[in-house]
């Protein structure tokens, strides 16, 4: 590596990236989501997907599910940085536990006629996608599954007249009787 004239050490990063899903339990108060997002943009971390909703309204708790990529050292940093925020209760690396279920919901609009229409319906059936809106020239499918399955379904719809997609982002939960 040829280091340019600088008093900083300019590093080439070699470590491979990993994708991790993090579940973050937070106090539902104004600005909490901005804090989390600001942390990611401010420190240059990636957000692949982010889902948030209040999950326990009496206790004002929200659960944020974040899919992120980075080297193992960066993923470790992200977890610590999240954990030290004042309104954050817990951070669980769902990928590390290897015992989590991840789901995403997508609504997929397809427009077409004749053979394409029939093919779209047949594939939807194979993917257990439901028809939630239909006109003589279009369908809206609702599909739930992991990210790969949804990506695959969307790819298949593309040549059949894909118009648009709305996705919720990933939600994750651990298997077994214990909570996070």
């Amino acid at each position: 590596m040829n280091q340019p004239a600088s008093a900083y050490f300019i590093e080439d990063r070699h470590d491979p990236n990993e994708t991790h899903t993090l579940a973050v339990l937070v106090q539902n108060e104004p600005g909490v989501l901005a804090r989390v997002i600001g942390l990611f943009s401010g420190r240059g971390y990636n957000i692949e997907s982010l889902t948030v909703s209040e999950t326990e309204s009496q206790k004002h708790l929200s659960r944020i599910t974040i899919v992120t990529t980075g080297t193992p050292m960066v993923i470790e940093q992200i977890k610590h940085q999240l954990d030290r925020m004042i309104p954050v209760y817990r951070v669980v690396d769902m990928t590390q536990t290897k015992r989590s279920i991840e789901r995403e919901l997508a609504m997929v609009k397809v427009r077409g006629e004749g053979e394409h229409r029939v093919e779209a319906l047949r594939l939807a059936d194979a993917f257990r996608a439901r028809v939630i809106d239909a006109t003589t020239e279009s369908f809206v499918f609702e599909i739930t599954g992991n990210t790969d399955k949804i990506n695959q379904f969307i790819d298949l719809m593309r040549p059949l007249g894909l118009v648009e997609v709305s996705r919720t982002g990933v939600a994750a939960i651990g298997r077994g009787p214990e909570g996070m």
Binding site: F9, E11, M73, E76, Q77, H80, Q81, D83, R84
Partner: peptide, 26 residues
Amino acid sequence: ITGRVDAFSPGSKKIHIDIDPSSINK
């Protein structure tokens, strides 16, 4: 402090005391 990180104190075992977990292994 570290200068070039991949050449920082290459032969040592390192103990790190810090109240902020995010300072460790950063």
